[in-house]
Every structure is written in C-alpha cells, then in structure tokens.
Amino acid sequence: MSIQHFRVALIPFFAAFCLPVFAHPETLVKVKDAEDQLGARVGYIELDLNSGKILESFRPEERFPMMSTFKVLLCGAVLSRVDAGQEQLGRRIHYSQNDLVEYSPVTEKHLTDGMTVRELCSAAITMSDNTAANLLLTTIGGPKELTAFLHNMGDHVTRLDRWEPELNEAIPNDERDTTMPAAMATTLRKLLTGELLTLASRQQLIDWMEADKVAGPLLRSALPAGWFIADKSGAGERGSRGIIAALGPDGKPSRIVVIYTTGSQATMDERNRQIAEIGASLIKHW
C-alpha cells in the first residue's frame, strides 16, 4: 500500500482519535458579512469528516447552483462504474471539434489522439474542462443518470439537468442544476469515506481534487503551510461562485467545507476574496 493510499485508508482512524471539535460562531459572522459585502445569498456548511456531524452552517438547506462543483460527483459516478466493471479508466475516447464547448483548455489539445477516461476526469476536476465533463456525462448516460446515481446514494436534493455550459445559467428560483450545502457536503463525505467506492477509487477521487489547479484564489489562499486540501470550485452566471473541499491540518483532511453564493453584482475577484476570507476565519478558529 502506498503512503497516499495509507493516508486515505486511515482518515477515519486518525479522526477518531482527534480531540473533540467545537464550532466557532466567528466564522458564521464572516459568512454573514460576506453576504453584506456581496449583496447576495451565501450558503455555508462545515462537517466533521469522521462523524458527519454538522459543526457550523448557514442557509444549509437553500438551493444554490452547483456550477462546476458537480464534476466531482460526476467522476465519482464514473469511478463507481469502474468498480462495477462497467468502465475502464484506460479506455480512450475520441471526439471532434464539434464536441468542444466553451472553456476546454485540455480537451482542445487532444482532438487528434483523444483522451482516456482517467485523463478526462483529471481534466474535468483539476482544470474544470467543460468538454471533458460533457464527454464523461455521455459515458454514464447524461445528466439524468448522474441525478439517479445521487438518488441511489441517498441524495434526493442534488440534481443535474443540463450539460456544460448551460448548467451554469443560475436563474433565480430555478431548481435545475442545483444542490443544497448540506446535501453536497453529505454526498461528498460519502464519496470520500464511505463504502460506495473502493479504496482505490476513493484515493483516485481525492487525488484529482488535491491536484486542483484553478481554485488557488479561494480556500487555498488562506491555508497555512502543512495543511491538506482537496477541492473543486465552480463559477456561473449572475454572480455565482462555489467551492467544495476536504481539508485539515497535519497533512490530512478532517472536515468537509461547502460554500456557495449566487445573485451578486460583485466582480469575480471580490467573490473570490470573500470566500478566501471565510476560509481564513475557519482556519483561525479551527
């Protein structure tokens, strides 16, 4: 067993022997301040990774656009098919120029040779490549099948209805392509620590998230040296922004954090800054 596999296998073990965790309302004060600064709703939840206990939450059962955070769930569904012998990570998928959609920095470079399922998941999570996500959605049967996968996990809230990039439209009061912070946090925890996926697939999923290259201005910008984070960000229309993450000190994750916002007129930089400040408060009061 590799060191990384050992780390993920012992996530519940280490967490069980940690000192009790206590909620700190100071972080919620910052979440509410972010709402004021952005002029928009902000949803927040913080779960203990081992027990699933909610440590703090704000608007945990209000719907927010998922945006690209759905790509972690998508690759979880792909990995479940791999575990069941219905898919192979090494299978190569070929596609054409007509398949390319807006923001496809990886797939646009491989029109000639195609990409493997493993490479597509890596591109979808680490670079948020939209064509990679659409190609992977095709392998599982489309958005409705991802929703069905989530329902089978016990998540009857999260739903995907459309493809990239239309799913980022974020129309107010439109339930399409949305989740709730509580539902997303619980589902992410199941994917990373539950028995739904094999140990190898859980490790692969967290490795992809740990290698995320496009979430630097968010929670990662607030992390002290030595902290662990595996995350996936999302951005959408109407001032929408979000991030889902597993993080913790001492090089291992111990909490799940989900943050979503929508309806702001603020710039992307300002949305990023507010999420980073929430992260800084979380870490300060850990």
Rank of each mutant, 00 (worst) to 15 (best):
D48F: 03
H24L: 09
P165V: 09
I256T: 03
E277F: 08
L74V: 10
M115G: 01
I125S: 01
V117T: 07
D155S: 00
N168F: 00
G142T: 05
A124C: 08
W208D: 05
G142M: 03
P105I: 07
G142W: 05
A123G: 06
E237D: 13
K144W: 09
S68K: 01
T186S: 13
I256A: 06
E195F: 07
G251P: 09
R202D: 01
T261Y: 07
D113E: 13
P181K: 01
N130I: 00
P253D: 09
V82C: 11
L55F: 10
V31F: 00
M209W: 02
I171K: 15
A84D: 12
Q37N: 13
K284F: 10
G251M: 13
S96Y: 11
N134Y: 03
K109R: 13
A185C: 07
A40R: 03
Y103P: 07
N173R: 11
G234E: 04
A200Y: 13
S57P: 02
A124H: 00
L191T: 06
E35H: 02
M153F: 09
V117F: 05
L55H: 08
G154S: 08
I206Q: 11
D174L: 03
D129V: 03
I278S: 02
A245N: 01
L137D: 00
K190G: 15
Q86L: 12
N152V: 12
I244P: 01
A182L: 15
T178E: 03
F64L: 01
E195G: 13
T112K: 15
A185Q: 01
G85D: 11
S201V: 04
R162M: 04
Q203F: 08
A84E: 10
L38V: 07
I171C: 15
T139K: 07
G234N: 00
M66I: 11
S264R: 06
E56V: 07
Y95T: 02
K30P: 03
M180W: 10
T261W: 04
I229R: 01
R92Y: 11
M184S: 02
L74G: 03
E164F: 03
L146N: 03
S281N: 15
I206H: 08
P172E: 13
W286L: 04
N152I: 12
P181V: 08
S281A: 13
T107C: 11
A182M: 13
D177F: 03
A34R: 01
S264F: 05
G234L: 00
I140G: 04
S281F: 09
E35V: 04
L120N: 00
I278K: 03
R176I: 03
H285I: 01
A276R: 13
I93R: 03
L160V: 12
V72R: 00
R91L: 06
A77E: 08
L167N: 04
S233H: 01
E61W: 12
F70V: 13
H151L: 13
A133M: 02
V117Q: 02
Q37I: 14
E166R: 11
A246E: 05
T139I: 14
L167P: 03
Q86R: 15
R202Y: 05
I54W: 09
A230F: 02
P217R: 09
L196T: 14
R63G: 03
K213V: 13
V72Y: 03
D48Y: 02
V117P: 05
A276I: 07
G154A: 07
T198M: 09
L146Q: 04
E108P: 07
C75T: 08
P172I: 10
T262W: 09
A222C: 10
R202S: 15
L47K: 04
D212A: 06
G141L: 05
T131H: 03
T179H: 03
R59K: 10
P60G: 15
R41M: 10
E237W: 13
R162L: 04
A235N: 05
A77M: 15
M153Q: 09
T186L: 15
H156Q: 13
A124F: 02
P105W: 04
Q37A: 14
A132Y: 01
P105T: 05
S80W: 15
H110K: 11
N50L: 13
E270Q: 10
D250H: 12
G76L: 06
L49M: 14
A123L: 02
N272A: 06
P249D: 08
L146D: 02
G263R: 07
Q37V: 13
M268W: 10
T131N: 05
A245C: 12
W208Q: 01
S201Y: 07
